[in-house]
């Protein structure tokens, strides 16, 4: 057990001060200390992406980030994606296109898709499949996830063009 550190991080716009051992993983801070249980734990080796959150504008696997590394960081989780108008278009499209079944991968999947569409607002299907390859789903076979993300991109682009 190491000496505890004071860590300050902003999660979904809210500033949190936490006291944590240097070895504490970000996913445990989020889930156990802050009660943010959207991101899940699936593998502990960075493969499955159930724990994906957005940290300073990049997708990270919160199960392999020490909370100490997140000191001063801006973090967005699935809980922070919806706006005052309700669900994020990705959340709506995952439902519309049946892009989820058990729901366990879904928070990480949508959080990653959200970042992907900022990195590449008009992806091809191949680019979506490649860009989502860090997130595993055991239920859907991905086909409808890809469809949902393509549909979300189309809607986001149409909205932008209209503005």
């Amino acid at each position: 057990m190491g000496k505890k550190m004071q860590v300050s991080l902003t999660v979904n716009g809210e500033v949190h001060e936490v006291l944590a051992e240097p070895r504490e993983l970000l996913i445990h801070t989020l889930r156990e200390k802050l009660g943010i249980t959207g991101p899940h734990i699936g593998c502990e080796t960075s493969h499955c992406g159930a724990c994906t959150v957005d940290m300073n504008g990049r997708s990270v696997k919160a199960c392999t980030v020490f909370v100490a590394q997140a000191d001063g960081a801006e973090i967005t989780t699935i809980e922070g994606l919806g706006g005052p108008d309700g669900l994020h278009v990705l959340q709506r499209m995952f439902r519309e296109h049946h892009g989820l079944q058990c729901g366990y991968c879904t928070p990480g999947m949508i959080t990653r898709a959200h970042r992907l569409l900022q990195e590449n607002p008009q992806p091809t299907e191949e680019e979506v499949r490649f860009g989502m390859a860090g997130n595993l789903c055991r239920c859907t076979g991905y086909q409808n996830i890809v469809k949902a993300i393509m549909a979300a991109a189309a809607e986001m682009n149409a909205k932008e063009a209209a503005e």
């Binding site: 943010i36 249980t37 959207g38 991101p39 899940h40 989780t77 699935i78 809980e79 919806g82 669900l87 959340q91 709506r92 995952f94 439902r95 989820l100 729901g103 366990y104 879904t106 928070p107 949508i110």
Partner: peptide
């Protein structure tokens, strides 16, 4: 899906 897409599942 309304719950699951918002991270409001209860596992």
């Amino acid at each position: 899906d309304v719950r699951f897409t918002q991270g409001k599942g209860n596992y």
